[in-house]
Design a protein around this nucleic acid. Structure first.
Length: 924
RNA sequence: GCCCGAAUGGUGGAAUGGUAGACACGAGGGACUUAAAAUCCCUUGGCCAUUACGGCUGUGUGGGUUCGAGUCCCACUUCGGGUACCA
């Protein structure tokens, strides 16, 4: 019997499929466990070897938990809406659905080859009407809800309407776009349009005029997390700011709960930190500064109310509504010109160009505490979208204000003792206050923290302002001017938006002749014929963004075919939440925020039983490419080997990693690669051409893409799985290097030879020896602990050691070998299943086996080795009885023959004995 | 700029404060073979020895705590990741 991976893997993959081995049902007799992968977007390029990394880890954990007796939910599906399929459709006219279907088929066949234990009966696709019905349904629920800030929960909008009818906005605690002040009489006198507009101020899904990231190249708006450094994440196109009337989700209402919820989940600190920064809670005060000779008051937000005595000017955002109100006649032309110049800059230009610019409005404000007159300026370093779009500038203690003050020659008043502000501002929140006293308030002599508290207390007591918490987290823009997304279930009656009846869902994505905007600039759905309700009302033309479909998919997996609700209470109360979620950290500020928001909303409605969707989360690292280079001597067709390249003037050229083995170039394949190289000549070292290498992103253009299918074909899925885990710690980014794969492949062959020695079955019913049991239980202990810690690389090493030991011991014991296979089954399921049946003689799948119990007894030693150190330096080792008391051990060390030379002419000051490990003799 | 993380042989990487470099790759040497592949054995951080499986040194840099530091503390350097005129 030889190890034949192709035959084995085909056989068992078929067996598992035919026997529905991985089908999962609710089973109250067993504890549940939910392991989830972030489902993939099926791109046209297919999977490369980096994609399955997280899936392999989650599969190992899933299989391990099943062997431990858990009923494990482990589903998979596709995040099927997305830009690439649509852009492909625009170029080729092929329907995105066709592209997507083909890509999904390719993904599925690639995934199947790796031997995952997904329950495919629960597969979902976000573009499937049966699925997106529930995405649309959730949107309608959000439209019909507002956020009650007193109850800290979403409530039906009908409750809000009732409140407005009776009390107006008096006593209303609701998250809102703007603070409104309405009497019941005013509300009741409103017409439908006015009422609709008013309610939009409160709805969780609302239409609003907001500054959006507009990407002209993609022809759509983008959410904040879809933009990085002024460029779109998809495609890298420039993004500009634009005021648009768009659908939004009031995620900001949940900011505090999203922050608090992080305390309850088991995620890495760095990921929690990323979310905390993104939510960006800052505590401070909102204050009003009266404008001189006017009734207008400027409202500002500051986190440093303690620095109120150092305010030497104020700054408004160019878009601030105050600018028009206070600018003096003589300054108006300059201010208008400045605002125009800002408007014409794209977001990216604004980022690159960090010059300090601004203009004086001509107006002065009054410092409410000192009564001093201070000039009001306009500058683009103040953002309209944060706080109130106006600031009090304290140049001595804020670096941005400092730069502005120096540019426009404004005064700088230091407020902290010893702070040198001649060269730069002193931003630290520490020190003793100076220059901070008026008739009503004296902060001098206080520490910064005390001063902050005192200032806040004073401000709220005197009514100058109030203590306020601000969040950086913005509402999510929910409209996309695209075709390939979920239609928003909204129709317009006389221009007033209303949601469709829930019973009419799903609202199907209509057919269009082209996937481009209409001539009049409307989104592609504007091309759909008859895009109206049955009653003839026009339907919404925007579609939902990419994150919509992925926000509640983990709930749908619990009950994927339910036609009457998103998830039944029975299914939800059994599966509860995701116990382990594995995926990339790139979703930290997108999907992982939106999902948590969406889940909390459903929780408020009493539709799900857990407040947080993902209990434990692991970020697998990215697998980078390892590119190979050849070195062409300039202006020739001669290539010089890596070790000799420095003697020539060379150009490095990427070469396909698939024709390089251990950095040695297959010269014949290289010549055949391109006609250009057919006549190439080579300068070799030691008869070989050695390539250089570099770690880069895995991509076609670098010729460093390694396809998992090729690895499976050549070495088998088990080798691929083990090798991906062996490569390094799961959470760390690391380059893929096929070179090391022979090591794990050899391990599988060694394992095989343990069961079939010289082609003959080598398993007997002999009793295990103490040595056998020691090797086995060392492994049980190590692998169990490693899986719990996601330290898969070290468990693979432990398998290698154990197999070597058992081979050396000539172990044939069926009991020991069977347990070895169970331990290995999560990692290399095919070979484990094969040997389980053919060599062990089992008649049921190894998936139905039980994880072996660890017994400390077998590891107990009668003697242990001590390292004997002198002054901390280890010098020799000695054996001692395992149960010897410390005094006996130190006496043994001192009388040991090797000790004599170290003890010569020295006095022993102290002896430290660490049982079973170290004897450290401290000499005088 | 701010926040987080990392730094260990030629390479990927192991090490509850207790003999640094597990495991693997690569490399060198050997066995088997007409030869190659495959397989197996030995060596492999550096330096000095090789009469000794002996010595010295060694985990980015400099300090500290400790009987003992890759591991803990302080300062710094470099590299990744996140975020950015967020007041």
């Amino acid at each position: 019997m030889e190890y034949n991976h192709k035959e084995i893997e085909n056989r068992w993959q078929q067996y598992w499929r035919e026997n529905n081995t991985y089908r999962t049902e609710i089973d109250h007799s067993r504890p549940k466990f939910y392991v989830l992968d972030m489902f993939p977007y099926p791109s046209g390029a297919g999977l490369h070897v980096g994609h399955p990394l997280g899936y392999i880890a989650s599969d190992i954990y899933t299989r391990y938990k099943r062997l431990q007796g858990f009923n494990v939910l482990h589903p998979m599906g596709y995040d099927a809406y997305g830009l690439p399929a649509e852009q492909y459709a625009i170029r080729t006219g092929q329907h995105p659905e066709v592209t997507t279907r083909n890509n999904i088929e390719r993904y599925r066949s690639q995934l199947d080859k790796i031997g995952f234990s997904f329950d495919w009966s629960r597969e979902i696709k976000t573009c499937d009407p049966e699925y997106y019905k529930w995405t649309q349904w959730a949107f309608i629920k959000m439209f019909d809800s507002y956020y009650d800030t007193a109850a800290d929960a979403a409530r039906p909008i009908a409750d809000l309407v009732a409140h407005l009818q009776k009390h107006g906005t008096e006593g209303l605690h609701a998250a809102a776009t703007r603070q409104l002040s309405i009497t019941p009489e005013q509300w009741n006198a409103m017409d439908d349009k006015e009422k609709s507009d008013t309610l939009m101020n409160y709805r969780l899904a609302y239409l609003g005029n907001t500054m959006v990231n507009w990407c002209p190249a993609l022809g759509t708006v983008l959410a904040n997390d879809e933009v990085s450094e002024g460029l779109s994440i998809r495609g890298g196109h420039p993004v500009e700011q634009k005021l648009m009337y768009q659908w939004c989700l009031r995620v900001s209402a949940y900011a505090q709960r999203l922050l608090d919820g992080l305390e309850k989940v088991d995620w890495t600190d760095s990921l929690k930190e990323t979310q905390r920064n993104w939510i960006g809670r800052s505590e401070g005060a909102e204050m009003r500064f009266p404008v001189a000779d006017s009734d207008i008051e400027l409202e500002i937000f500051t986190t440093r109310p303690d620095t109120i005595f150092g305010v030497t000017f104020m700054v408004l955002a160019p878009e601030s509504k105050y600018v028009d109100m206070i600018t003096t006649e003589e300054m108006r032309p300059a201010v208008d010109e400045y605002r125009q110049s800002i408007k014409h800059k794209t977001e990216r230009e604004r980022m690159i160009d960090r010059r300090v610019t601004g203009v004086f409005t001509g107006a002065y404000a009054i410092n409410p505490i000192t009564g001093k007159k201070i000039p009001v300026w306009v500058s683009d370093y103040v953002l309209a979208g944060y706080g109130t779009g106006a600031i009090m500038a304290v140049p001595a203690h804020d670096s941005r204000d400092y730069a502005f003050a120096r540019t426009f020659d404004l005064p700088v008043i230091p407020l902290i003792q010893g702070a040198d502000v001649s060269e730069q501002s002193f931003d630290a929140k520490e020190g003793t206050m100076i220059n901070s006293a008026s008739d009503s308030l004296n902060l001098n002599g206080l520490q910064v923290k005390e001063a902050m508290a005192a200032a806040k207390e004073f401000i709220s007591r005197t009514g100058i302002g109030k203590v306020k918490v601000n969040f950086r987290l913005r509402d999510a823009i929910f409209s996309r001017q695209r075709y390939w997304g979920e239609p928003i279930p909204v129709a317009y009656r006389n221009g007033i938006p209303e949601t469709l009846p829930v019973e009419s869902l799903p609202l199907l994505l209509p057919e269009v002749d082209k996937y481009l905007p209409t001539e009049s600039g409307e989104p592609p759905l504007g091309r759909a014929a008859n895009w109206k309700t049955a009653a003839g009302l026009p339907l919404e033309l925007n579609t939902m963004p990419g994150f919509a479909g992925s926000s509640a998919y983990y709930l749908r997996y619990m009950d994927p075919r339910n036609n009457s609700c998103l998830v039944s209470p029975e299914a939800n109360s059994y599966w509860k939440q995701v116990d382990l979620y594995i995926g990339g950290s790139e979703h930290a500020t997108g999907h992982l925020i939106y999902s948590r928001f969406w889940n909390k909303f459903l929780y408020d409605l009493g539709l799900v039983c857990e407040d947080e969707p993902f209990r434990r989360l692991i970020n697998q690292g990215m697998i980078q490419g390892r590119s190979n280079f050849v070195y062409r001597i300039k202006d020739t067709n001669t290539f010089v080997s890596h070790g000799l390249k420095d003697q020539y003037d060379v150009t490095p050229i990427h070469v396909d990693v698939n024709m390089v083995t251990n950095d040695r170039l297959d010269i014949e394949r290289f010549k055949a690669w391109s006609p250009e190289y057919a006549t190439a000549e080579f300068i070799l070292e030691d008869g070989q051409y050695i390539c250089g290498y570099a770690v880069e992103k895995m991509s076609k253009s670098m010729y460093n893409v390694v396809n998992p299918d090729d690895i499976v074909e050549r070495y088998g899925a088990d080798t691929l799985r083990l090798y991906e885990m062996f490569l390094g710690p799961l959470e760390q980014s690391k380059p893929w290097d096929t070179n090391g794969i022979d090591g794990v492949n050899r391990f599988i062959k060694k394992l095989w030879n343990l069961f079939y020695r010289d082609g003959k079955l080598n398993v007997t019913d002999t009793e295990p020896t103490p040595e056998n049991l020691k090797s086995l239980h060392k492994l049980i202990k190590k692998v169990t602990a490693d899986i719990e810690n996601f330290s898969f690389n070290t468990s693979v090493a432990a398998f290698m050691i154990c197999v070597n030991e058992l081979a050396q011991q000539r172990c044939t014991s069926r009991k020991v070998l069977a347990d070895l296979l169970i331990l290995l089954a999560p990692f290399a399921p095919h070979v484990a299943e094969e040997l389980w049946h053919t060599a062990i003689g089992a008649t049921t799948s190894i998936c139905d086996a039980s994880w072996p119990a660890f017994n400390e007894e077998y590891l107990r030693e009668s003697t242990v080795r001590y390292a004997v150190s002198f002054n901390g330096k280890a010098r020799f080792t000695m054996e001692a009885p395992a149960d010897a008391p410390r005094d006996t051990v130190s006496d043994m060390a001192l009388s040991h023959p090797d000790a004599a030379k170290w003890l010569e002419n020295k006095t022993v000051k102290k002896i430290i004995v660490v049982p079973g490990k170290i004897v450290n003799i401290v000499l005088g």
